[in-house]
């Protein structure tokens, strides 16, 4: 189907979202809670765009979250009207007030033209913007379900149940990888891995060939339960995998 985004005619398939189509066509829409590997949550509201159908109804337009809004034939989409720009600035100011010391949030806000916030700062140490990406990746992609969102409203938090390091955490680091404010630190030192944000600590399993740390025992076992892989694959670091098994895979198509 065809729609128009910022004056440009674009094509889209049934089932796609406005954001997907926009990004494919190099239209820049800011997002915080969106990640292409995850079900869109539509909670940061940065991606809001204006939709209308000027030929059919000249007095109608609507602001929708592009990360969840499904494409429709003949839609006219505007991603950066003055109204939207002002709205994004206010949202950025609100988030800056929430996480005033977070470098990622500060530069995100700067890109939107926001240098400071007039709103009151509640907790100057706060680093989390409750985008939910860590929870979604842990539950929906990895399947470990080690962290969740608890409480509600202004006191909503992310973390393991009872705030105590969870046995369900496998130390895979997917949460740290997706976090937009980089507040989940994964610290690997020697053969130990710590994720202080979730109060967990792990021992790293060494590579069978070179001895460098591969991943945690829990992570390896977790993957083993899923894919039936033996120690040759799972307890070998990526470098050695490439060196020793790359040629074999290239020639025979398998290990």
């Amino acid at each position: 189907m065809q729609l128009t985004i910022d004056g440009k005619k674009v094509t889209a398939k049934e089932g796609e979202t406005l954001l997907q189509v926009a990004r494919r066509n190099k239209v820049d829409i800011p997002t915080l809670c969106f990640h292409e590997s995850l079900e869109p949550r539509g909670s940061c509201r940065m991606c809001m765009v204006e939709i209308s159908r000027p030929e059919k109804r000249h007095d109608w337009s609507r602001l929708v979250a592009s990360c969840v809004y499904p494409v429709e034939e003949g839609l006219t989409v505007k991603t950066d009207t003055e109204e939207i720009t002002e709205m994004r600035k206010t949202l950025a100011e609100l988030l800056l007030a929430r996480t005033p010391a977070n470098a990622e949030m500060i530069s995100f806000a700067k890109r939107l033209g926001v240098e400071q916030t007039a709103f009151e700062i509640k907790d100057p140490e706060e680093q989390c913007i409750l985008c939910g990406q860590c929870v979604r990746v842990c539950s929906d992609v990895i399947g470990a379900h080690a962290i969740g969102m608890y409480d509600r409203g202004a006191t909503k938090k992310v973390g393991p149940a009872y705030g105590k390091g969870s046995d369900a955490c496998i130390g895979c680091g997917a949460c740290a990888h997706v976090c937009p404010t980089k507040c989940i630190e994964m610290i690997d030192a020697g053969m130990t891995r710590k994720i202080p944000h979730w109060d967990v600590e792990f021992e790293l399993v060494p590579c069978r060939i070179c001895g460098k740390p591969v991943s945690t025992r829990q992570h390896i076992d977790f993957v083993r339960r899923r894919i039936d892989g033996g120690p040759e694959v799972l307890e070998t670091c990526s470098e050695c995998l490439g060196k020793f098994y790359g040629a074999k895979v290239a020639a025979e198509g398998h290990m």
């Binding site: 949550r41 909670s43 609100l94 988030l95 709103f119 409203g153």
Partner: peptide
């Protein structure tokens, strides 16, 4: 509303807090 907001979206969760302030 501050007590009852689910806290999912930024404008409601953060906006209500700041309005209350």
């Amino acid at each position: 509303l501050l007590q009852e907001s689910c806290g999912k979206c930024v404008p409601c969760r953060e906006g209500l807090q700041q309005m209350h302030v």
